[in-house]
């Protein structure tokens, strides 16, 4: 027996049957454990339609795929960065329907009909978004790895109106870690755009 012969339907039937038999004697239960340990659920995909950077996309993604991995590994939109894959660093920040969202904590399967903007979609053609321009002028980065996430958050931070003081900007930008410590320039860039 190998995984090809074990269809999903077979798996559901078998596991369903065993759920029904949950109360049966322990030898049967042990047998169930044996079968279960042999079964390896196959990969499943799900077609999803969404908009990314104003372009319509029809993707058939692995149901386990995050938006972050979809962007980076399938669509070659590598501007969105992976810094932790756990929702702890902000490097993967994108906008979904205008709100800042962590793409590593968003499954592709959750996005039908949604509108996603990534760092690649922020500029207006050749013309940089004012926040991108401000990050350059204020040197709001060093290695640049956290930068796309910082910029996406910064744009949202201004839209949300959390820019009344240095302290407020710092507070609302603290979900975006920068190990280079380029926080001076990041704050300065946001102040510049918020004016």
């Amino acid at each position: 027996m190998n995984e090809q012969t074990l269809s999903r339907r077979f798996f559901l039937k078998v596991s369903g049957a065993f759920v029904a038999l949950a109360a049966v004697p322990s030898t049967v239960h042990a047998f169930y454990q044996d079968v279960k340990s042999f079964l390896v659920p196959p990969k499943e995909t799900l077609p999803t339609t969404l908009t990314i950077n104003k372009q319509p996309y029809k993707v058939t993604a692995d149901t386990r795929s995050t938006l972050l991995d979809l962007l980076r590994e399938e669509l070659q939109l590598t501007g969105t960065k992976k810094g932790c894959d756990h929702g702890q660093c902000g490097a993967c920040t994108v906008h979904v329907d205008g709100q800042r969202v962590l793409s590593c904590l968003t499954l592709t399967a959750m996005l039908p009909g949604k509108t996603v903007t990534t760092i690649e979609g922020l500029a207006d053609g050749e013309k940089l978004h004012p926040m991108q321009q401000a990050f350059i002028e204020c040197d709001g980065f060093q290695c640049g790895y956290c930068t796309p996430g910082q910029i996406m958050s910064a744009v949202a931070c201004v839209n949300e109106g959390h820019t009344k003081s240095v302290a407020e900007i710092k507070e609302f930008m603290s979900g975006n870690l920068c190990r280079c410590g380029a926080y001076n320039g990041i704050v300065e860039a946001i102040q510049k755009v918020a004016k």
Partner: peptide, 28 residues
């Protein structure tokens, strides 16, 4: 090389703020 680049910006600044710069895992 871009005329949009402010003189004081870093040489690779545009690549970094637009997400175009390729880090190790990002090459196709």
């Amino acid at each position: 090389l871009s005329t949009l680049m402010p003189a004081e910006g870093r040489v690779e600044a545009i690549a970094k703020v637009t997400g175009k710069g390729k880090y190790a895992a990002e090459y196709t």
